[in-house]
Design a protein around this nucleic acid. Sequence first.
RNA 1: GCCAGUGUAGCUCAGUUGGUUAGAGCGAGGGACUCAUAAGCCCUAGGUCACAGGUUCGAUCCCUGUCACUGGCACCA
Length: 532
Amino acid sequence: MNRFFITTAIDYTNGAPHIGHAYEKVLADVLARFHRQTGEEVFLLTGVDQHGQKVQQSAEREGIAPQEYVDGVTAKFLALWEKLGVVYDDWAATTAPKHKECVRAILTRLWEDRDPATGASRWIYKAARAGHYSVRQEQFLTDKERGPNGEFGPEWGQVEYREEENYYFRLAEHRQWLLDLIDARSGEGKPFVVPEFRVSELRNAVEKLEGDLCISRPKNRLSWGIEFPFDPGFVTYVWFDALVNYLSFAPGYDPIPTRPPHEFLAWWRTVIHDIGKDILIPAHGVYWPVMLKALGFSDAEMPTLLVHGWWNISGAKMSKSLGNTVDPDVLADRYGRAALRYYLMADIATGRDADFSEERLIQRYNVDLANGLGNLVNRTLNMTLKYREGSPAPIDLPADLATHLTANTLAQETYVRSMRDGQVQAGLESLGDVVNRANALVDASAPWKLAKDPEQADRLDAVLATLILSARTAATMLLPVLPEAAAEILEQLNLVAAPLEERGLELLPAGYRCGEPKPVFPRLDAIVPPEA
RNA sequence: GCCAGUGUAGCUCAGUUGGUUAGAGCGAGGGACUCAUAAGCCCUAGGUCACAGGUUCGAUCCCUGUCACUGGCACCA
């Protein structure tokens, strides 16, 4: 059986989830559900990044332990995924003992991977760096931070000269390897980064790669992290902690053996990292492949990065400081899970940015779901019950209706291709084709007229069967995005989902009888004003 | 500053591996119908595909330059 391993970025537990977090997780959930539907074995991994300075500071401000603080924020994420119907196979929390042990084992392994000539680690070294340090911002400053007059501005507070030792991961010497990898993957038609227009962006960044990656923080600066296994004076700094979650929670992974076991590799060879464009460079596009290489992963075992865009608010970047964040929790309560999931999948092309608007959300729901698919199901079932007591006579379809179903099959094939590429919006457009064609057929064939003419009895049976089968195709294509609503439609149709690889015509089963219609997507009338 | 992305109908956006009449939805106008969630269907929009060059038999789609907007280059979907 084919496998499909998809991960999301793990969200930083220093604030409540916003629409961007929700989008990424719903996207992963939809792709996971789609791949399951095609018969593949699927593993969806998501979680939270709980360490770091900001968490430590926030906890101190509230006078509670960091773990207590992150547990509180983590609960909000867990509740949101529950509310949005995001179902995952494992939960990657970076404070979990399993993860900490894995990070430490990996660091130890790299530290002990010695160059026989020098006796030094081939991957990690300790070095002292000196420079200007902002106490307020708790970071070293570079010349880029200097103002026009060459001085550090007041936003940095007190700036002092400091010297600090840290551990570094060798990065720069793998520049050419990474460039070759990127080019090779593009040449094979399996780009390292999807969508492909981001490849050049990454490539340029790699071209300019210099310097190594600082992977530690002295404990006196940062204590809320994973302690270095071979130097208790340090904790692991962000990326060697966060990125490793993809391994520590991967099915079957064990950091100890030289080569990972077969079960893990069977999953890993299919892995797709669903991430935002902000963490492509340098984290996922540079650090991560080099880290994997250091751990002995071959070029064929490098992941694919599925990079999505951002939801902007009125064209502006969403940010807390602008106060224009959108709370997915509130939206889900206000409009329902289905409306929110559908909007997030239908109104953005994977990889691109889009503008978020509640008006658009309502519009897409009403036009596509209520007026389109929902009404199609409703009118089809009503007519079937009214004219045929729910059971159209089983007859062969005339050529025009057979052609109609063939067009549906083609739409479904297009849909499958789009979804395999992660292009959910394009997939939903194919769904819209099926719905529109069926609604047009209703008007063109006018069953209410056929019903009055006994000589047209066969025609009426054939039209109703075509409509029912079209509705089934549409519901089948909706399943990954809106599983409950699609299941409800199938129940009303009294049919099971169509197989996605199906070809050729399939008629209604013998003795078919449809169920009772009930609007699956009640119209949303207008923007519900926010609570005063 | 460096790098990247974007710039397509009133609005929000697709798309074109270069090739006869550039697409969708919404909005707007008109029409016929009644099975249906007053939903659906049909017809209508004529946008120099940012601007200027270049390559080509032919460019909106490739190249160069210009302008505008956005993002990355410091944590951050």
